[in-house]
Design a protein around this nucleic acid. Structure first.
Lengths: 156, 156
DNA sequence: GTTCGATCGTTTGATATCCAACAATTGTAC
DNA sequence: GTACAATTGTTGGATATCAAACGATCGAAC
């Protein structure tokens, strides 16, 4: 009996990826996107995306940091942070103060609520990272991380 | 002589990344974003983003493929492809034909112009991948790629 | 044949991101 | 001190993405 093509339900056809299959860029993108989605689902109840999580972490670790510094550290344009911070401030997770000696910049810090939200997010992140560790394998983790950092630092 | 803080021009303050520094998710994002930017700049004259490049490659390798199949293979929602294909068709890089036996789906294929554009993009991609190879090192490349694929396949 | 669930591509509405240009402010050089 | 260049955060315009809902169509079960 010849195999009947079995393509009906859910239609998972075999696709020829061509050179994409071997390209770091493409596979980096696929891995990043899946990872992003997975974290989003884990933290869905808390309702905060990975980007906002990075923002909160950076502010928590660097009280008084400016928006521009956060944007540089998280690899996003400063204008991307305007709506994000507007929202975080509105929801009282982040406090924004002007300084006397430089009235252009804001000094950002976490409120008590912000710290609490960050703590909850950290729990999700730990679970998420454990999943990733399981996939990568502890033996290769260090090297993998090192290469990711090297790419981010040197490709520019 | 005490170090003078030297923070003036370009202001590159030292930032505390906290746990972010060790998280795969965050570093994956940073690496992917830099890589995306680097490719965009390389292919600026051609004026095509990495996402569109993947789309063209998949169509070129799988003539007659449907939009949904392209979206699945490139890890994007099918609705993301609507405006992209609209544009590619308008610029006569991609041809879209309806089929007789299933009038829901389109059959996508590259036009001559599309093939030419893809060829030019492939040159950029080769250069781009060479840069990445230089950073990663050929000794670790295979393993690195394998882990990226594993993450994309298993994290869901 | 008819009915009902599944699939295809689109629409709609929401975020996230970039870039370029801007006003306010600062710092430096003269 | 004044003039000019740099920096900060915002605005405006563009693209890319997702998710949910939709109409059209198909296929399978009855």
């Amino acid at each position: 009996m010849v195999r009947k093509k079995k393509r009906a339900r859910g239609g998972a056809e075999r696709v020829n990826y061509g050179p994409l299959a071997q390209w770091i860029g493409f596979n980096l993108r696929m891995a990043q996107e899946s990872t992003f989605q997975a974290f989003s689902h884990l933290s869905k109840e808390i309702g905060e995306t990975p980007g906002r999580f990075a923002t909160l972490t950076l502010i928590g670790r660097n009280p008084g940091i400016s928006q521009t510094a956060v944007s540089r550290a998280s690899g996003r344009d400063k204008s991307s942070l305007t709506p994000v911070l507007e929202d975080l401030v509105r929801r009282r997770l982040v406090a924004r103060k002007r300084t006397d000696h430089d009235r252009r910049t804001y000094r950002l810090s976490l409120t008590a609520d912000g710290k609490q939200a960050l703590a909850r997010l950290n729990k999700c992140a730990k679970r998420h990272e454990r999943n990733l560790d399981r996939i990568i394998g502890m033996r290769d983790r260090r090297k993998f991380l090192e290469i990711l950092k090297k790419i981010a630092a040197e490709i520019g």
